Structures are given as C-alpha cells and as structure tokens.
Computed example of a mutant assay.
Amino acid sequence: MKSVATATARIAMAALLALSAAATTAFAQTERMTGLKLSGDQPIQIESDRFEVDENQSLATFTGNVSVVQGETVMKAGRMKVFYKSDGGSATTGSADIDRLEVEDGIYVKSETQVATGDRGTFDMDSEVLVLSGNEVVLSEGDNVITGCKLTVQMSNGQARLDSCGGSGAGGRVKMLLTPESRNR
C-alpha cells in the first residue's frame, strides 16, 4: 500500500501544482507557464479518512477530508480519485502509469500567496489539461480576484481560459477585481 500512496501522492501533487499555477496564470501578465515539475526535495503528505485500491478498475480513491501537502502548497477536497492506465503495471505496487486525476466535493488549493477554489477538478496526464469547475471557480492573490465557472489550463503551453457561468445577468459573466497596489508586488 505504501508504494501506491507514493505514486498517488506524486500525481496528486502534480494536480495540486497545476491548480495553484492556474491562479498564477490569472494574475501574471508577463509570465507564461511552461510546464510544471514536482519538487523532489520535499516530502508529500496525503491524509484522508479512507483509502481504497480497486485493481479491476485501475483506481485508487482517497475519501473524506482529503489533505495533500508539499512544502507551502496545500490541497483539500472531499474525494480524490486516481485512475491508472490498464495496459500493464499494478496500482497496488505503484508501478502503474497514471491516466488522470479527479478531485471533487469542494476543492481548496493554496500555494504561497495564491488560492484556487471550485467544486471539482480533473487533470489528464497525457494531454496535460487541467479543468477546475463548479458553481463558482475563484482564483485569488491577495485582494485580486477572478471568478467564473470553468477554468481550463493547457499546462504544456500555459494557455488558460475561464468561462462564465452562462445565463443572463451579472452572474453569467467572468468577473475580475484588480487592486492598484498589486502592481507594486
């Protein structure tokens, strides 16, 4: 089980870093994401109320008060599912390749000064596409805030898109609040 936890922790951290990078993208006007690498020099700690592995489904699931921590970066959610590719390897021994990660039931990600929240998120390993969605997706850095309902980030080239919640009225638009003092940071 320990090797499964290690492999799962690495993918969870990749998704965690992806989510926090999404917040960075929202506020960095001159910087561009060029991909993310895990910080191999810091341990990753995952805690949850329950951990299950289903080899037949190539699935590992953390349920209840899921917390993933590496250094100053923290992710919290109600559930985290790790889907493994079924073409060889074993989820139990940690030798299987990760296909995708799904996080749901209230996502909170904090990395240094950025915070991202949403109802659910996915990270596809092959396409390197992160999607964070919900009734309200919020990305913040200090007093700067951007909200919408679906954030899609292509990690390989740094392109990001935040979609509105649809419908009419003020609730159907992407909203951004930028404070003048944030330029001096």
Rank of each mutant, 00 (worst) to 15 (best):
T63A: 11
R50M: 06
T63H: 04
E55L: 03
I46C: 06
A60D: 02
F51I: 09
Q45E: 15
Q42H: 09
E55R: 02
G35W: 12
F62I: 01
T61D: 06
D49N: 15
G64S: 02
I46F: 08
I46A: 05
D54T: 14
G35H: 10
E47F: 05
F51W: 05
G64E: 02
R50E: 11
T61F: 09
Q45P: 15
V53K: 01
G40R: 09
F62T: 00
E47L: 09
D54V: 05
D41F: 13
F62S: 00
A60E: 00
E55W: 03
N65R: 03
Q57L: 12
K37E: 10
L36S: 12
Q45L: 07
I46N: 11
F62A: 00
I44S: 01
S39P: 05
E47K: 06
T34S: 15
I46G: 03
N56Q: 15
Q42N: 10
E52P: 07
G35F: 13
N56A: 15
G64Y: 02
D49I: 04
E55Q: 07
Q57W: 08
R50V: 06
L59V: 05
E55M: 08
G40W: 14
T61L: 04
T63K: 03
L59N: 02
D54A: 13
T61M: 10
D54R: 06
Q42F: 12
E55I: 04
S58E: 02
L59T: 01
F62M: 01
L36Y: 15
E47Y: 12
M33N: 14
S39L: 12
I46H: 08
